[in-house]
């Protein structure tokens, strides 16, 4: 006897299989763009005068930050969708986007640290953007932990949806509080500060292209993760002897 979620999962799988072309297109597109992006970053964009070659990490760092935030935006919308409708597909989308978001936020924090060490002379400083990023990361690691520790999949879905809403609303409040907090405690910048000269147009083009590339990569990863999650649910249903 087949079950409703199993059928739903199977139907969704079938739907994804039908759109294998979409998936292959996304894969090919993001691969091609990534190669082009690497070429732009390492061959075409000029080396920054003051910071040197380490500045090129910015072409990864900024898109990672963008994708992280985009992913959490998707989590927010999917969470509202789940809380309102209770449909599994919203949970699949929110869960998948949260994992990708945490991955890219982690990369963003690491690349940011690597950049900060030679430029600011420290791995970390409690500047508003860094602090907010760290709290953002903590919020969504909490989201994933909550899922892992929830008693049932249904509760995991509902609890994490609540966290997905609360966390996203919290981000701007965190940002303001941290900005005001840092105004009271001026940050210490050791080493040469980031220059605020006009960006070389090639740098700007590279950065914009990189952001687009990472966005396509995000869409592709989200697609893959969602279909993987559907397959996981299908296996779970089969395991329970249905």
């Amino acid at each position: 006897m087949t079950t409703r979620p199993l059928q739903a999962a199977a139907a969704q799988r079938a739907g994804l299989a039908d759109s294998a072309t979409v998936r292959m297109t996304l894969l090919a597109l993001s691969a091609a763009m990534m190669f082009a992006d690497l070429a732009l970053i390492f061959l075409w964009a000029p080396t920054e005068q003051v910071m040197g070659v380490v500045q090129r990490i910015f072409y990864f760092h900024v898109p990672e930050a963008w994708v992280g935030f985009l992913a959490f935006g998707v989590v927010f919308i999917a969470s509202i969708g789940y809380l309102v409708t209770g449909k599994r597909k919203w949970d699949v989308a929110g869960h998948s986007a949260a994992e990708i978001g945490v991955l890219f936020t982690t990369l963003m924090l690491i690349t940011g640290s690597i950049w900060a060490k030679p430029v600011w002379g420290v791995w970390w400083t409690w500047d508003p953007r860094l602090t907010t990023s760290l709290i953002l990361w903590l919020l969504y690691v909490g989201y994933l932990m909550l899922r892992a520790y929830a008693p049932t999949p249904a509760k995991a879905a509902r609890y994490s949806a609540i966290m997905g809403v609360i966390g996203f609303i919290d981000v701007p409040i965190v940002y303001f509080s941290v900005v005001w907090w840092r105004n009271i405690h001026p940050e210490l910048i050791i080493g040469p500060a980031a220059p605020r000269d006009a960006l070389d147009p090639r740098m700007l083009v590279t950065l914009i292209f990189s952001v687009f590339t990472f966005t396509v990569l995000f869409v592709y990863l989200l697609w893959e993760r969602m279909s993987l999650r559907n397959a996981e649910d299908e296996v779970k249903a089969l395991r329970q002897g249905e």
Partner: peptide, 12 residues
Amino acid sequence: LTKTFSVRPVLR
């Protein structure tokens, strides 16, 4: 009335 715990429906 349909109610599912985990992926297995109890009420169908």
